[in-house]
């Protein structure tokens, strides 16, 4: 098998419930190395929950998760599914970067300290190494000049770019973006997209939840439409729009967000 075709992460038949609500309903997903997947869908359809199951911020009720071909994350104790040892979960998470809608930068740390925090605390790098990694990442997102300020005095777009740098500093194999531009003023969306696009061009594997159709089409290899915890449509991004016309639900959703 071609190296580029290796499956990085695979979800097999996963289900996640919140009490009565079925947030993820028997979903299957394979993401290959270097592939970019965009997920769209109405609010409450389970997009965030799906991303969060991939790095175990949400515990699934059924199904299996494979990372680099190995089943990971859960063990069975007395027939009950429990999360694997914290050490293993943390190791898995450290290989998966996540970018949140609301940034969640650490307000008590400066920009560079935010980016150094992962390498320092999780990867146990010394200060020098962590600093040089952080500077590289800040350069990549174009925020070297802000390295010594606190997040409180950054714009939304700058905050999100720092959050991306913070995730990248862990040298992740997979990046998860949960509506990275939804909390931004329209004029700040572009700079964040540029940063993500650059990452895509470098070959990063990524799953991105977004409402920006143009961006999904331009960047993703595959687009998934989600509703009620299920994949309603999954298609190559070039084919997605023509296929979507056949489904009235998707068509009306797309029309709504394009307006």
């Amino acid at each position: 098998m071609n190296k580029d075709n290796q499956v990085l992460v695979e979800l097999k038949n996963i289900t996640k419930r919140f009490g009565e609500v079925v947030a993820i309903d028997k979903v299957n997903l394979k993401v290959h190395k270097g592939e970019k997947v965009a997920i769209i869908g109405p609010s409450g359809s389970g997009k965030s929950t799906l991303l969060r199951t991939i790095n175990f911020l949400e515990k699934i009720d059924e199904g299996q998760i494979f990372f680099e071909g190995k089943e990971v994350g859960y063990v069975f104790k007395r027939n009950k599914r429990v999360l694997d040892k914290p050490k293993k979960i943390c190791a898995l998470r450290s290989e998966i970067g996540m970018v949140f809608q609301h940034f969640h930068l650490f307000p008590h740390l400066t920009v560079i300290e935010n980016v150094m925090e992962g390498p320092r605390t999780v990867l146990k790098k010394n200060k020098q190494e962590a600093k040089s990694i952080a500077l590289d990442m800040l350069k990549k997102v174009g925020l070297l000049d802000k390295k010594n300020v606190y997040p409180a005095c950054l714009s939304g777009g700058q905050k999100q770019r720092v959050a991306i740098a913070r995730a990248l500093a862990m040298k992740p194999k997979l990046m998860l973006f949960d509506e990275p531009t939804s909390a931004l003023d329209p004029e700040l969306v572009g700079e964040v997209f540029e940063a993500i696009k650059k990452l895509a061009q470098e070959g990063m594997t990524m799953i991105i939840v977004t409402h920006q159709m143009g961006f999904a089409r331009e960047m993703a290899d595959r687009v998934i439409f989600m509703e009620h915890g299920r994949f309603l449509l999954e298609a190559k991004s070039k084919e997605f729009f023509s296929s979507s016309l056949e489904n009235p639900r998707i068509k009306s959703f797309l029309q709504k967000i394009l307006d």
């Binding site: 949140f100 969640h104 650490f106 605390t121």
Partner: peptide, 13 residues
């Protein structure tokens, strides 16, 4: 969100 972001980086509790 602070705890989530820390966990997402791979930090223990």
């Amino acid at each position: 969100g602070q705890m989530e972001a820390a966990k997402a980086l791979g930090m223990t509790y």
